[in-house]
């Protein structure tokens, strides 16, 4: 069952034997029914399929909710956006994930290897070295400061402030570029004069703030 958006800052997930839910720690606001919570680590699919080891520096330990009932999720009054995936892949920073159906497959892109460009992207988005890919059929609840809006990408490139980038779905290429004068556009202490250029076919989600959270 897809997540219900209770209001702009809270979602409700229905947990059942067939549909456990994974969330970030500290996101559970309350629940009814008989729901059991336990900590999990790593990536994979389903609660049992989660790999037990934690990557050094991984910033995202999760919590599994299993049983029968409904759970309310929210985090620090941040806005929550629900994205329902129908087979496509959502890419976003791991610490923006509030909760998702455990049936979705998650994997982490480690940017330790890869070129200078990728390493810089990780640093600029404040994530450190990890982005998460979520794939399959199910709901994902994502955190954004002030809410997020969707920009369809259709051939024309879209420029995005790296701090305002929430995530994207579809077949998109997200490249980090430096540009003269860009510091004025995204400046204010970020130090970098970088922008993200998004090309391809899909949707990019941007938050209404240039501060991460």
């Amino acid at each position: 069952m897809p997540f219900e958006q209770v209001n702009s800052k809270v979602v409700r997930a229905h947990v059942s034997q067939a549909t456990p839910v994974l969330s970030r720690r500290g996101a559970m606001l309350g629940y009814d029914g008989r729901v059991v919570f336990r900590p999990v680590h790593g990536q994979g699919q389903g609660v049992g399929g989660m790999m037990g080891r934690a990557f050094a520096g991984e910033s995202n330990p999760m919590m599994a909710a299993e049983g029968q009932g409904s759970v309310l999720y929210g985090y620090r009054g941040l806005h929550v956006v629900v994205i329902d995936l129908k087979g496509e892949t959502l890419t976003c920073e791991a610490d923006r994930l509030l909760a998702h159906d455990a049936s979705l497959t998650t994997s982490v892109e480690m940017i330790a290897q890869g070129g200078i460009r990728q390493a810089v992207r990780g640093a600029v988005t404040g994530q450190g070295l990890f982005t998460t890919k979520v794939n399959g059929m199910g709901s994902v609840a994502v955190l954004a400061h002030g809410g997020a809006f969707a920009i369809p990408v259709n051939g024309q490139p879209v420029g995005v402030d790296p701090q305002a980038y929430v995530g994207h779905t579809g077949n998109l290429n997200v490249d980090l570029q430096a540009k003269v004068g860009w510091r004025d556009a995204v400046g204010r202490g970020s130090g970098e004069a970088m922008q993200l250029i998004v090309t391809g076919q899909g949707t990019v989600y941007v938050q209404a703030s240039e501060e991460k959270f």
Binding site: Q156, D161, V206
Partner: peptide, 8 residues
């Protein structure tokens, strides 16, 4: 300054 979040 710094208020741009996206553009096309």
């Amino acid at each position: 300054q710094g208020s741009m979040v996206a553009y096309t």
